[in-house]
Design a protein around this nucleic acid. Structure first.
Lengths: 161, 161
DNA sequence: CTCGTTTGGTTGATGTGTCAACCCGACCCG
DNA sequence: CGGGTCGGGTTGACACATCAACCAAACGAG
Protein backbone atom coordinates (compact mmCIF):
# COMPACT_ATOMS: atom_id res chain seq x y z
CA UNK A 1 0.00 0.00 0.00
CA UNK A 2 2.84 2.33 0.84
CA UNK A 3 4.29 1.31 -2.50
CA UNK A 4 1.21 1.49 -4.69
CA UNK A 5 -0.50 -1.49 -6.20
CA UNK A 6 2.31 -2.73 -8.41
CA UNK A 7 4.83 -5.35 -7.45
CA UNK A 8 8.48 -4.48 -7.70
CA UNK A 9 10.95 -6.80 -9.39
CA UNK A 10 11.85 -8.86 -6.35
CA UNK A 11 8.23 -9.26 -5.38
CA UNK A 12 7.29 -10.25 -8.92
CA UNK A 13 10.01 -12.81 -9.02
CA UNK A 14 9.09 -14.36 -5.69
CA UNK A 15 5.40 -14.33 -6.56
CA UNK A 16 5.99 -16.06 -9.85
CA UNK A 17 8.24 -18.63 -8.20
CA UNK A 18 5.46 -19.31 -5.75
CA UNK A 19 2.93 -19.68 -8.56
CA UNK A 20 5.14 -22.10 -10.42
CA UNK A 21 5.79 -24.10 -7.27
CA UNK A 22 2.13 -24.51 -6.35
CA UNK A 23 1.22 -25.55 -9.88
CA UNK A 24 4.10 -27.97 -10.19
CA UNK A 25 3.49 -29.55 -6.83
CA UNK A 26 -0.23 -29.85 -7.36
CA UNK A 27 -0.02 -31.42 -10.78
CA UNK A 28 2.71 -33.76 -9.63
CA UNK A 29 0.76 -35.01 -6.63
CA UNK A 30 -2.44 -35.27 -8.61
CA UNK A 31 -0.91 -37.21 -11.46
CA UNK A 32 0.67 -39.58 -9.02
CA UNK A 33 -2.63 -40.21 -7.28
CA UNK A 34 -4.40 -40.66 -10.59
CA UNK A 35 -1.98 -42.92 -12.33
CA UNK A 36 -0.99 -45.12 -9.40
CA UNK A 37 -4.35 -45.36 -7.64
CA UNK A 38 -7.04 -44.06 -9.99
CA UNK A 39 -8.08 -41.35 -7.58
CA UNK A 40 -8.45 -37.65 -8.29
CA UNK A 41 -7.48 -34.99 -5.77
CA UNK A 42 -11.20 -34.48 -5.16
CA UNK A 43 -11.82 -38.15 -4.51
CA UNK A 44 -8.91 -38.14 -2.10
CA UNK A 45 -10.22 -35.15 -0.19
CA UNK A 46 -13.65 -36.68 0.29
CA UNK A 47 -12.24 -40.02 1.32
CA UNK A 48 -9.84 -38.44 3.80
CA UNK A 49 -12.69 -36.61 5.49
CA UNK A 50 -14.91 -39.65 5.65
CA UNK A 51 -12.19 -41.98 6.83
CA UNK A 52 -11.16 -39.58 9.58
CA UNK A 53 -14.66 -39.42 11.00
CA UNK A 54 -15.45 -41.91 13.72
CA UNK A 55 -18.34 -43.64 12.05
CA UNK A 56 -17.18 -43.39 8.47
CA UNK A 57 -20.35 -41.51 7.66
CA UNK A 58 -21.16 -37.82 7.46
CA UNK A 59 -23.95 -35.60 6.31
CA UNK A 60 -23.30 -33.83 3.02
CA UNK A 61 -23.25 -30.37 4.56
CA UNK A 62 -20.54 -31.43 7.01
CA UNK A 63 -18.43 -32.48 4.07
CA UNK A 64 -19.28 -29.21 2.41
CA UNK A 65 -18.08 -27.32 5.45
CA UNK A 66 -14.84 -29.19 5.92
CA UNK A 67 -13.89 -29.23 2.26
CA UNK A 68 -15.13 -25.71 1.56
CA UNK A 69 -16.77 -26.95 -1.62
CA UNK A 70 -19.93 -25.53 -3.11
CA UNK A 71 -22.89 -27.72 -2.46
CA UNK A 72 -23.54 -28.39 -6.13
CA UNK A 73 -19.98 -29.43 -6.76
CA UNK A 74 -20.21 -31.75 -3.81
CA UNK A 75 -23.50 -33.22 -4.94
CA UNK A 76 -22.25 -33.90 -8.45
CA UNK A 77 -19.03 -35.40 -7.23
CA UNK A 78 -20.72 -37.62 -4.68
CA UNK A 79 -23.03 -39.10 -7.29
CA UNK A 80 -20.02 -39.84 -9.48
CA UNK A 81 -18.17 -41.42 -6.58
CA UNK A 82 -21.21 -43.48 -5.71
CA UNK A 83 -21.33 -44.78 -9.26
CA UNK A 84 -17.74 -45.89 -8.84
CA UNK A 85 -18.50 -47.62 -5.56
CA UNK A 86 -16.28 -45.47 -3.33
CA UNK A 87 -19.14 -44.14 -1.20
CA UNK A 88 -22.79 -44.83 -0.61
CA UNK A 89 -25.67 -42.47 0.13
CA UNK A 90 -27.78 -44.19 2.70
CA UNK A 91 -31.08 -43.04 4.10
CA UNK A 92 -31.29 -42.53 7.85
CA UNK A 93 -34.14 -41.52 10.11
CA UNK A 94 -33.90 -37.77 9.66
CA UNK A 95 -34.80 -36.96 6.09
CA UNK A 96 -31.38 -36.39 4.55
CA UNK A 97 -29.12 -39.21 3.44
CA UNK A 98 -25.83 -39.88 5.14
CA UNK A 99 -22.71 -40.31 3.08
CA UNK A 100 -20.89 -43.48 4.02
CA UNK A 101 -17.50 -44.67 2.88
CA UNK A 102 -17.62 -48.18 1.39
CA UNK A 103 -15.18 -51.02 1.87
CA UNK A 104 -13.75 -50.24 -1.54
CA UNK A 105 -13.37 -46.57 -0.63
CA UNK A 106 -11.68 -47.45 2.65
CA UNK A 107 -9.34 -49.83 0.89
CA UNK A 108 -8.48 -47.25 -1.74
CA UNK A 109 -7.50 -44.56 0.71
CA UNK A 110 -5.63 -46.90 3.02
CA UNK A 111 -3.64 -48.01 0.04
CA UNK A 112 -2.70 -44.62 -1.34
CA UNK A 113 -2.31 -42.52 1.79
CA UNK A 114 1.21 -43.62 2.74
CA UNK A 115 2.57 -43.10 -0.74
CA UNK A 116 0.92 -39.71 -0.94
CA UNK A 117 2.27 -38.64 2.42
CA UNK A 118 5.71 -39.80 1.39
CA UNK A 119 5.59 -37.60 -1.69
CA UNK A 120 4.43 -34.60 0.30
CA UNK A 121 7.34 -35.17 2.63
CA UNK A 122 9.92 -35.71 -0.07
CA UNK A 123 9.00 -32.83 -2.34
CA UNK A 124 7.72 -30.28 0.12
CA UNK A 125 8.16 -30.82 3.83
CA UNK A 126 11.75 -32.00 3.66
CA UNK A 127 12.71 -29.29 1.19
CA UNK A 128 11.36 -26.62 3.49
CA UNK A 129 12.83 -28.16 6.62
CA UNK A 130 11.31 -27.72 10.08
CA UNK A 131 12.01 -24.03 10.59
CA UNK A 132 10.77 -22.72 7.30
CA UNK A 133 7.85 -25.13 7.53
CA UNK A 134 6.78 -23.63 10.84
CA UNK A 135 6.98 -20.15 9.39
CA UNK A 136 4.95 -21.28 6.39
CA UNK A 137 2.20 -22.58 8.62
CA UNK A 138 2.03 -19.28 10.50
CA UNK A 139 2.00 -17.05 7.48
CA UNK A 140 -0.55 -19.28 5.73
CA UNK A 141 -2.94 -18.76 8.60
CA UNK A 142 -2.32 -15.03 8.43
CA UNK A 143 -3.12 -14.92 4.74
CA UNK A 144 -6.31 -16.89 5.23
CA UNK A 145 -7.32 -14.59 8.07
CA UNK A 146 -6.61 -11.49 5.99
CA UNK A 147 -8.70 -12.68 3.08
CA UNK A 148 -11.45 -13.80 5.42
CA UNK A 149 -11.56 -10.41 7.12
CA UNK A 150 -11.80 -8.65 3.80
CA UNK A 151 -14.53 -10.92 2.52
CA UNK A 152 -16.71 -10.69 5.59
CA UNK A 153 -17.48 -7.12 4.75
CA UNK A 154 -17.13 -7.17 1.03
CA UNK A 155 -17.68 -10.24 -1.10
CA UNK A 156 -19.37 -13.59 -0.73
CA UNK A 157 -16.38 -15.90 -0.73
CA UNK A 158 -17.58 -17.58 2.42
CA UNK A 159 -19.59 -20.19 0.65
CA UNK A 160 -23.22 -19.42 0.36
CA UNK A 161 -23.66 -23.08 1.06
CA UNK B 1 13.09 -39.87 5.06
CA UNK B 2 14.77 -40.23 8.38
CA UNK B 3 11.33 -40.09 9.89
CA UNK B 4 9.48 -42.44 7.59
CA UNK B 5 6.82 -41.40 5.16
CA UNK B 6 4.24 -40.09 7.59
CA UNK B 7 3.89 -36.49 8.66
CA UNK B 8 3.98 -35.71 12.35
CA UNK B 9 1.41 -33.41 13.92
CA UNK B 10 3.25 -30.15 13.37
CA UNK B 11 3.99 -31.02 9.80
CA UNK B 12 0.39 -32.04 9.17
CA UNK B 13 -0.85 -28.82 10.63
CA UNK B 14 1.48 -26.64 8.57
CA UNK B 15 0.76 -28.63 5.42
CA UNK B 16 -2.97 -28.27 5.86
CA UNK B 17 -2.62 -24.57 6.56
CA UNK B 18 -0.68 -24.26 3.37
CA UNK B 19 -3.33 -26.18 1.42
CA UNK B 20 -6.09 -24.00 2.79
CA UNK B 21 -4.12 -20.86 2.01
CA UNK B 22 -3.44 -21.73 -1.60
CA UNK B 23 -7.05 -22.70 -2.21
CA UNK B 24 -8.43 -19.62 -0.51
CA UNK B 25 -6.08 -17.26 -2.30
CA UNK B 26 -6.64 -18.87 -5.67
CA UNK B 27 -10.39 -18.87 -5.50
CA UNK B 28 -10.42 -15.33 -4.18
CA UNK B 29 -8.23 -13.98 -6.97
CA UNK B 30 -10.07 -15.96 -9.60
CA UNK B 31 -13.51 -14.86 -8.49
CA UNK B 32 -12.37 -11.29 -8.45
CA UNK B 33 -11.01 -11.52 -11.98
CA UNK B 34 -14.16 -13.25 -13.17
CA UNK B 35 -16.75 -11.07 -11.59
CA UNK B 36 -15.06 -7.70 -12.12
CA UNK B 37 -13.54 -8.27 -15.54
CA UNK B 38 -15.04 -11.43 -17.02
CA UNK B 39 -11.66 -13.12 -17.29
CA UNK B 40 -10.69 -16.54 -16.01
CA UNK B 41 -7.29 -17.26 -14.52
CA UNK B 42 -6.44 -19.06 -17.74
CA UNK B 43 -7.44 -16.12 -19.91
CA UNK B 44 -5.32 -13.90 -17.70
CA UNK B 45 -2.28 -16.12 -18.01
CA UNK B 46 -2.44 -16.22 -21.79
CA UNK B 47 -2.99 -12.48 -22.06
CA UNK B 48 -0.11 -11.73 -19.70
CA UNK B 49 2.25 -13.79 -21.81
CA UNK B 50 1.13 -12.26 -25.07
CA UNK B 51 1.12 -8.72 -23.78
CA UNK B 52 4.61 -9.11 -22.37
CA UNK B 53 6.02 -10.24 -25.69
CA UNK B 54 7.44 -7.49 -27.89
CA UNK B 55 5.21 -8.03 -30.89
CA UNK B 56 2.07 -9.15 -29.10
CA UNK B 57 2.22 -12.37 -31.07
CA UNK B 58 3.66 -15.78 -30.25
CA UNK B 59 3.64 -19.27 -31.62
CA UNK B 60 1.45 -21.72 -29.76
CA UNK B 61 4.34 -23.85 -28.57
CA UNK B 62 6.02 -20.84 -27.02
CA UNK B 63 2.88 -20.22 -25.04
CA UNK B 64 2.82 -23.88 -24.18
CA UNK B 65 6.35 -23.66 -22.86
CA UNK B 66 5.89 -20.53 -20.80
CA UNK B 67 2.54 -21.55 -19.33
CA UNK B 68 3.47 -25.20 -18.89
CA UNK B 69 0.10 -26.20 -20.32
CA UNK B 70 -0.52 -29.34 -22.32
CA UNK B 71 -0.85 -28.61 -25.98
CA UNK B 72 -4.43 -29.83 -26.19
CA UNK B 73 -5.54 -27.65 -23.30
CA UNK B 74 -3.87 -24.72 -24.96
CA UNK B 75 -5.46 -25.45 -28.31
CA UNK B 76 -8.94 -25.73 -26.82
CA UNK B 77 -8.54 -22.60 -24.77
CA UNK B 78 -7.18 -20.55 -27.64
CA UNK B 79 -10.13 -21.42 -29.85
CA UNK B 80 -12.49 -20.38 -27.06
CA UNK B 81 -10.59 -17.13 -26.56
CA UNK B 82 -10.65 -16.45 -30.26
CA UNK B 83 -14.43 -16.86 -30.26
CA UNK B 84 -14.58 -14.21 -27.56
CA UNK B 85 -12.37 -11.85 -29.53
CA UNK B 86 -9.46 -11.76 -27.06
CA UNK B 87 -6.92 -13.22 -29.47
CA UNK B 88 -6.61 -14.04 -33.15
CA UNK B 89 -4.85 -16.93 -34.88
CA UNK B 90 -3.24 -15.44 -37.94
CA UNK B 91 -1.44 -17.28 -40.68
CA UNK B 92 2.14 -16.33 -41.31
CA UNK B 93 4.70 -17.50 -43.86
CA UNK B 94 5.89 -20.60 -42.03
CA UNK B 95 3.07 -23.11 -41.90
CA UNK B 96 1.84 -22.63 -38.33
CA UNK B 97 -0.41 -19.80 -37.25
CA UNK B 98 0.77 -17.11 -34.86
CA UNK B 99 -1.34 -16.21 -31.87
CA UNK B 100 -1.89 -12.46 -31.69
CA UNK B 101 -3.50 -10.45 -28.93
CA UNK B 102 -6.35 -8.27 -30.19
CA UNK B 103 -7.22 -4.70 -29.24
CA UNK B 104 -9.97 -6.07 -27.04
CA UNK B 105 -7.55 -8.48 -25.38
CA UNK B 106 -5.03 -5.74 -24.78
CA UNK B 107 -7.69 -3.49 -23.35
CA UNK B 108 -8.97 -6.24 -21.06
CA UNK B 109 -5.62 -6.99 -19.52
CA UNK B 110 -4.57 -3.37 -19.19
CA UNK B 111 -7.78 -2.79 -17.34
CA UNK B 112 -7.58 -5.67 -14.89
CA UNK B 113 -3.85 -5.93 -14.23
CA UNK B 114 -3.53 -3.11 -11.68
CA UNK B 115 -6.47 -4.32 -9.63
CA UNK B 116 -5.14 -7.87 -9.73
CA UNK B 117 -1.67 -6.80 -8.66
CA UNK B 118 -3.18 -4.77 -5.86
CA UNK B 119 -4.99 -7.80 -4.54
CA UNK B 120 -1.87 -9.95 -4.74
CA UNK B 121 -0.07 -7.29 -2.76
CA UNK B 122 -2.78 -6.80 -0.18
CA UNK B 123 -3.56 -10.44 0.55
CA UNK B 124 -0.21 -12.07 0.00
CA UNK B 125 2.90 -9.96 -0.49
CA UNK B 126 2.16 -7.50 2.29
CA UNK B 127 1.10 -10.26 4.67
CA UNK B 128 4.38 -12.07 4.11
CA UNK B 129 6.47 -8.94 4.28
CA UNK B 130 9.80 -8.59 2.45
CA UNK B 131 11.86 -11.06 4.46
CA UNK B 132 9.50 -13.98 4.45
CA UNK B 133 8.69 -13.21 0.83
CA UNK B 134 12.34 -13.57 -0.12
CA UNK B 135 12.56 -16.86 1.68
CA UNK B 136 9.40 -18.04 -0.04
CA UNK B 137 10.88 -17.30 -3.44
CA UNK B 138 14.01 -19.29 -2.61
CA UNK B 139 12.26 -22.30 -1.22
CA UNK B 140 9.78 -22.31 -4.08
CA UNK B 141 12.62 -22.63 -6.53
CA UNK B 142 14.07 -25.45 -4.46
CA UNK B 143 10.81 -27.36 -4.47
CA UNK B 144 10.43 -26.96 -8.23
CA UNK B 145 14.01 -28.12 -8.72
CA UNK B 146 13.49 -31.14 -6.48
CA UNK B 147 10.38 -32.24 -8.32
CA UNK B 148 12.05 -31.61 -11.65
CA UNK B 149 15.05 -33.72 -10.70
CA UNK B 150 12.85 -36.57 -9.63
CA UNK B 151 10.75 -36.45 -12.77
CA UNK B 152 13.64 -36.34 -15.17
CA UNK B 153 14.49 -39.87 -14.24
CA UNK B 154 11.13 -41.20 -13.30
CA UNK B 155 7.88 -39.84 -14.64
CA UNK B 156 6.79 -37.73 -17.55
CA UNK B 157 5.70 -34.56 -15.79
CA UNK B 158 7.87 -32.47 -18.04
CA UNK B 159 5.20 -32.04 -20.63
CA UNK B 160 5.41 -34.48 -23.44
CA UNK B 161 4.37 -31.53 -25.52
C1' DC C 1 -53.05 -20.90 10.06
C1' DT C 2 -50.40 -18.93 6.34
C1' DC C 3 -47.09 -16.78 3.99
C1' DG C 4 -42.18 -15.74 3.47
C1' DT C 5 -37.57 -17.12 4.42
C1' DT C 6 -33.93 -20.19 5.51
C1' DT C 7 -31.66 -24.72 5.18
C1' DG C 8 -30.04 -28.91 2.88
C1' DG C 9 -29.83 -30.84 -1.30
C1' DT C 10 -30.51 -31.94 -6.56
C1' DT C 11 -30.47 -30.81 -11.43
C1' DG C 12 -29.12 -28.99 -16.10
C1' DA C 13 -26.48 -26.01 -18.98
C1' DT C 14 -22.33 -24.50 -19.92
C1' DG C 15 -17.25 -23.64 -19.59
C1' DT C 16 -12.95 -25.86 -18.71
C1' DG C 17 -9.14 -29.66 -18.34
C1' DT C 18 -7.32 -34.29 -19.66
C1' DC C 19 -6.46 -38.18 -22.31
C1' DA C 20 -5.81 -40.60 -26.42
C1' DA C 21 -6.02 -40.50 -31.11
C1' DC C 22 -5.11 -38.42 -35.16
C1' DC C 23 -3.09 -35.22 -38.96
C1' DC C 24 0.64 -33.52 -41.64
C1' DG C 25 5.01 -31.86 -42.93
C1' DA C 26 10.00 -32.46 -41.97
C1' DC C 27 13.77 -35.00 -41.21
C1' DC C 28 16.53 -39.29 -41.10
C1' DC C 29 18.00 -43.80 -42.41
C1' DG C 30 18.08 -47.52 -45.52
C1' DC D 1 12.86 -43.62 -53.63
C1' DG D 2 10.30 -45.71 -49.36
C1' DG D 3 9.22 -46.00 -44.97
C1' DG D 4 9.97 -44.58 -39.71
C1' DT D 5 9.49 -41.18 -36.31
C1' DC D 6 9.48 -36.66 -34.46
C1' DG D 7 7.50 -31.93 -33.74
C1' DG D 8 3.61 -28.86 -33.79
C1' DG D 9 -1.08 -28.76 -33.68
C1' DT D 10 -6.22 -30.22 -33.84
C1' DT D 11 -10.14 -33.04 -32.47
C1' DG D 12 -13.58 -35.79 -29.72
C1' DA D 13 -14.95 -37.97 -25.74
C1' DC D 14 -15.21 -37.68 -21.21
C1' DA D 15 -14.42 -35.97 -16.20
C1' DC D 16 -14.90 -32.05 -13.54
C1' DA D 17 -16.40 -27.17 -11.77
C1' DT D 18 -19.58 -23.30 -11.66
C1' DC D 19 -23.79 -20.97 -11.93
C1' DA D 20 -28.48 -20.37 -11.57
C1' DA D 21 -32.67 -22.50 -10.96
C1' DC D 22 -35.35 -25.43 -8.53
C1' DC D 23 -37.44 -28.45 -4.65
C1' DA D 24 -39.16 -29.72 -0.16
C1' DA D 25 -39.14 -29.55 4.80
C1' DA D 26 -38.64 -26.51 8.79
C1' DC D 27 -39.04 -22.25 11.00
C1' DG D 28 -40.88 -17.65 12.37
C1' DA D 29 -43.82 -13.69 12.44
C1' DG D 30 -48.20 -11.75 11.43
Amino acid sequence: MSKGPWLDDDEQKAWRSYLLMTRTLETHLERHLQRDFGLSKSDFEILVNLSESESGRMRAFELSRSTQWEKSRLSHHLTRMEKRGLIRKEACESRYPEIAITEAGMAAIKECAPAHAARVREFFVDVFGPDRMTVLGEVSDEVVATIGKHCDTDCPLADRS
